[in-house]
Write a protein that binds this DNA or RNA. Structure first.
Lengths: 124, 124
DNA sequence: ATTGATACCGAATCTTTTTTCGGTTATTGC
DNA sequence: GCAATAACCGAAAAAAGATTCGGTATCAAT
């Protein structure tokens, strides 16, 4: 998958959890699957700004950690469906809290963000 | 602070939230401050595997997004104390859910993790 | 005046993650 | 046979993020 060089410390709950679901798109993918968007190509259409490759890779990691299950039907253009495991579903309350928090504060965060970008424009 | 190259999409709650508190140590730092560990040097002692520099940087980002407040007393060896803002406190329920999830599944995750590492050992 | 503690910053470097791109395989429809 | 579609993989390159290191500044104690 990839070989890390630095030691990891999984000694607090936060770091353990982040190990499993940090990554640019993992939570979005879990959310999509939860909403019934279960095939890689569909997830990709749904999360337009994520590349298909990264979705595949993050699905593989989620699968590795038992967050999602995969069933590949051996038919037609090759059909794979992912679904949440029990473990995956146990993340849903966290997911919805995070999502709600983000929605509630989206305007504020975007405003701060654009201030940053403005400053990056002007050299000095 | 730093200039990014790729466009960001803050169109879903999850991505907005992650913008604010993703980062290797941000949640741990928020947790520490919540537990009364409020000065950079102390936070550093508490989160041993994070460097002081990264704590400073992540504190700066949290400050930028209004998650923490800073008050620098202009005394003795220079005393800075960080505390959670209202916005920061609104993250605590998420934080505790994440932490609990991680604790509950720590054994399982560590086991999977060590499998990965074993496989990385053997070349083929 | 030197040392020690604290906070903080800039820049180079290194690690990790994501992106890009070019494959492979398998099946359907033309 | 040839194009299209879906899933997926490997590897190079790019980008993002973290680390290392060496600095500044301030005050207090020795």
């Amino acid at each position: 998958m990839y070989e890390r060089k630095m030691e990891e410390d999984l000694d607090c709950g936060i770091r353990v959890a982040l190990k499993v679901f940090s990554g640019k798109w993992k939570l979005c993918i879990i959310d999509a699957i939860n909403r019934g968007i279960v095939r890689p190509a569909e997830i990709h259409k749904n999360i337009a700004s994520a590349t298909l490759r990264v979705i595949e890779m993050q699905l593989a990691e989620l699968y590795f950690f038992g967050v999602v299950d995969k069933c590949t039907e051996d038919v037609y253009p090759k059909k794979s469906e992912y679904k949440l495991t029990e473990l995956g579903r146990s993340l849903l309350p966290i997911l919805s809290k995070i999502d709600k928090w983000g929605m509630d504060h989206a305007d504020f965060v975007k405003e701060r963000q654009s201030e940053l970008e403005e400053n990056a424009m002007k050299p000095a």
